[in-house]
Design a protein around this nucleic acid. Structure first.
Lengths: 114, 114
DNA sequence: AAGCTTTGCTTGGTATTGCAAGCAATTTTT
DNA sequence: AAAAATTGCTTGCAATACCAAGCAAAGCTT
């Protein structure tokens, strides 16, 4: 049940802060912080994690990982970003003709709006 | 209320899939998918977003951002994978609305061919 | 045409996030 | 030492994520 609760607690105590002190600066209630530190919360929202990451000056991604959210695959550089590659990743195969039609349609959309 | 619902719907329909087909492959219920696409969900969990990102072959980070979760600026991919990139090189940036329209139009193109 | 299947959608329910309010124990102030 | 403030913590509650089950409409099959 409590896998990372003690981590948040250690983080706070290492800085000698009270629950209410953290509450004031992060806008996360002391009630919830207490539950968080004692392992009563399963997966705090990214919004909450972000506030805590900012405040404690730790990596947001690391917190996400710690509570069990999937993290983006690798920080490796993305592959070449040619139009066809991007289109393939996104839409499955897309033909040249389809791409041309999409581009023309985009022009149409824009002209229509004014 | 709904800002990204249309987007998920366009994504699914551009591939000509049913709610239940997506359910089978992503393990996200068709009930929830329906709610998601009609703007009845505020912030689907990262877990759900990850499944959909994998399945639709779009960037997980981009979905996170789309539904309003904080995304660390430094860790963001240099260029996001999206339909907009199909056109970006040639026509510059496109808006979310335009992207949705393009996805829908792609669906139309593909269905038109019998 | 009458059944069977598939479609998107709604509804009722469970689980969880996150908080306001309050409590007992400890610390600080007077 | 009494009063006041501060501490971590619990509890009830509102909001929301997510799903199983079911529904009406539309599509197929015979």
């Amino acid at each position: 049940m409590d896998r990372y609760g003690h981590y948040f607690k250690a983080l706070r105590e290492s800085k000698g802060l009270t629950l209410r002190e953290v509450e004031r600066q992060t806008e996360v209630s002391n009630a919830y912080l207490s539950q968080l530190e004692s392992g009563k919360v399963k997966q705090p929202s990214p919004n909450t994690l972000y506030k805590l990451a900012q405040f404690y000056k730790v990596s947001y991604q690391m917190l996400m990982e710690k509570v069990g959210y999937p993290v983006p695959k690798g920080d490796r550089p993305l592959q070449e970003q040619s139009v066809s590659n991007v289109a393939k990743n996104k839409l499955g195969e897309i033909t040249n003709e389809e791409e041309v039609e999409l581009l023309q349609y985009l022009k149409f959309i824009r002209n229509r709006k004014q």
